[in-house]
Amino acid sequence: MTEKQVLLKVENLYKHFPIKKGIIFSRQTGAVHAVDGISFNIYNGETLGLVGESGCGKSTTGRTILQLYRPTSGSVFFEGDDLAKLKGENLRRKRRDLQMIFQDPYASLNPRMTVGQIIGEPMEIHGTYKGAAQTKRVQDLLQLVGLNGAFANRYPHEFSGGQRQRIGVARALALEPKLIVCDEPISALDVSIQAQVVNLLEDLQSTLGLTYLFIAHDLSMVRHISDRIAVMYLGIIVELADRNELYANPRHPYTQALLSAVPYPDPFVEEKRKRIILEGDVPSPVNPPSGCRFRTRCQYAKEICAEEKPAFREISKDHFVACHFDISGQQSAS
């Protein structure tokens, strides 16, 4: 990337899910703070990785960006427009440019539709391709994702997980989007098939100039595919940096622990590694800890950590961290 151009700008985004009690007179008794004030940019043509443990708010972030969930507050600027404020036809038109690929290749495709109908549906809804032109476009998309064009008449159950994920990719590409949110697109696949799908996503990015928000658990895969990486913990982003910088020089205690927990497929390295083992579990997002969210598991926590929220500050160029202190920690890579 020579000149970095912002494609998407997320500002102070919140998404809370109300918790209701009572059947007839339901009243709100609390809220799940799924996304709790996050800000970041996604640059044109890049892959931004989003990692963090289960329940930290990764999928909610992806869905709220696409306006599949409307934000509780905050803005999502896409090419100058705030998607959070757009409605009706204006929003629908913008949405074409933003698509999503889901985690579960089994649940995300309608079993009663043929592959051709599944891929054709977005074109039908948006009226971009019809009739013979649509059939042709479906064939082209199938070939683009490495499947036989003749598969258009088959049903999802006739395909393997990796093939279904390719169908999901073809559908996401149907409207020629600019940004694709990939929500754990390979987690449900076997190791030998994961590489097939990752290679496909990389190829499509370079031929079509796509931008990805790539959500995943697997930190080694995220490192492989991303240009920059954001680390989430309990609804907020605690660290954001270039991928090499983040892995070589993690500055947030949570990032350090997370990287240190990843096993390496190398017994010679594993033999020498010392792990930071976190105590306990992630606290509930209904009542997140005061001050720093990570303080209940942080080995460096001090009084101030319970009292004040750490700012998300730029500690070196393009490297952001939300911690009161400057902790350079052990490096996780040996």
Binding site: D190, V191, S192, I193, H224, Y264, S334
Partner: peptide
């Protein structure tokens, strides 16, 4: 050999295309 080649490694500094195993079990 294929399985090990299809894994990304966290200690890699250069980009390497993953080797995929085509086909299915």
């Amino acid at each position: 050999i294929g399985l090990l080649g299809s894994l990304p490694r966290m200690d890699e500094t250069e980009y390497r295309r993953l080797t995929s195993i085509d086909g299915l079990p």
